[in-house]
Design a protein around this nucleic acid. Sequence first.
DNA 1: TGACTTTAGTAGCGCATTGCTACTAATTCG
DNA 2: CGAATTAGTAGCAATGCGCTACTAAAGTCA
Lengths: 235, 235
Amino acid sequence: MRERSLVIPRPSARTLTAAIDVVLLTPRDGTLATLLLRASDPRARDRWLLPWDAPRIEEPPEQAALRVARGVLGVPPAALEQIAAFGDSRRHPGEAQLSVSFVGLVPHDVAAHVPENAVWVDHERLPLMAPRHRAMVDAAVDVVRRRIDQAPLAFRLLPPSFTLSELQSIYELLLGRPLHKASFRRALQAAFLVEPTDEWRSEGRGRPAQLFRYAPRRRRASRRGVRFDLIEQRD
Amino acid sequence: MRERSLVIPRPSARTLTAAIDVVLLTPRDGTLATLLLRASDPRARDRWLLPWDAPRIEEPPEQAALRVARGVLGVPPAALEQIAAFGDSRRHPGEAQLSVSFVGLVPHDVAAHVPENAVWVDHERLPLMAPRHRAMVDAAVDVVRRRIDQAPLAFRLLPPSFTLSELQSIYELLLGRPLHKASFRRALQAAFLVEPTDEWRSEGRGRPAQLFRYAPRRRRASRRGVRFDLIEQRD
DNA sequence: TGACTTTAGTAGCGCATTGCTACTAATTCG
DNA sequence: CGAATTAGTAGCAATGCGCTACTAAAGTCA
């Protein structure tokens, strides 16, 4: 039973309930923090929620995500990327059958001004949440970690000029592991991503640090070889 | 205007029309080929379609994608991963407002048996298609290329035992660039991904090749350093 | 003032990885 | 048998990366 024909007799789209969910991430106290909203109804099943809303009529998911993010932050996030669609049996707080989730990065200064019903929580110490929302946070961090070396995500979390130590801290937070200072700087220089300004910043103790700005000069030669960075078998 | 409160007054999910679209990829004549279906109605606006269907009631997207893939292939694909949700103004053939798209990998022997209204087309030489479907094919190839070193995708396109030249060809197809033979084998050995069998295969001319099987022995040490493989600025 | 602490930044060694050329090995074709 | 063809390896050169150990410039405090 292998030869078939006309398997798909003119399908037509079906309606289902949908939601747009947004995972906002910011560097905070040495952790990567996620923005959670306290449920307005204290008897609600889920006390803590990711910001979300239904898409408006004819509103594309990305635009809806931007609207939701702006609703909580007042300004757009520094970066916004789609994570994935979630539509399995894991519960969504609004009982949406299908969720399209986005991750947004928020600079520290913007993150300081959020509504009173919102809190930033270390992404590794989340309270009890709807299972779909919790899965989104984990997936959001994965997306960021996989994209950090392909998009200038880290730089969007910093002001236009920054010290290399600040930049390294952001990378360490986003990657979730420490980096070696000398190696980090060497790799940064080889990639022609930043250029020094003639300003220096004295931050309390210690030698003042030179300020740099993001100024990608040329493309890095394409990735060499094959890496076979196979972690485990996924089925 | 930065301090806000209660930004999200209990949203509720809204209904919209949805579709599940599947990009099937197979190695074919030295190219990565995509499965397209010819429209049953020759006057249809889109003559060529990706396999797709509406999700059934309560059917999760992944399961629907599996069903669609089985409908064309007769068997499940060797691997199936979500690509992304597409919901912008790019037209879908079924006018679905929201599409959840998946990419499936199909071994060569399975790909040989498809319905008569289906054809395999080089992913770089697609005919005119609905814009959303075309975008999905491009995104599917991107997803595969980004995941190939983290999941054993290449091995799923091969029979249980295979020659290293065959394996290298698959990698080259999926990555879209040639690899150097000696370097490929060295990296492969360092990753402890395959083990030799005691069989050899003589394929016409030339020295017979030893057959190997996929047998990941241990995890590769985690990726070192930072790579800053920044390609271009994305906005 | 001068030693100590703290943070910034660099030099350079050793090892692993990778691209490459050049080889050897085993088979078919004529 | 020799040429052609495909499989597989050796080893060099260059690069990348982790690390230790340094120098530099500020504050702190006796």
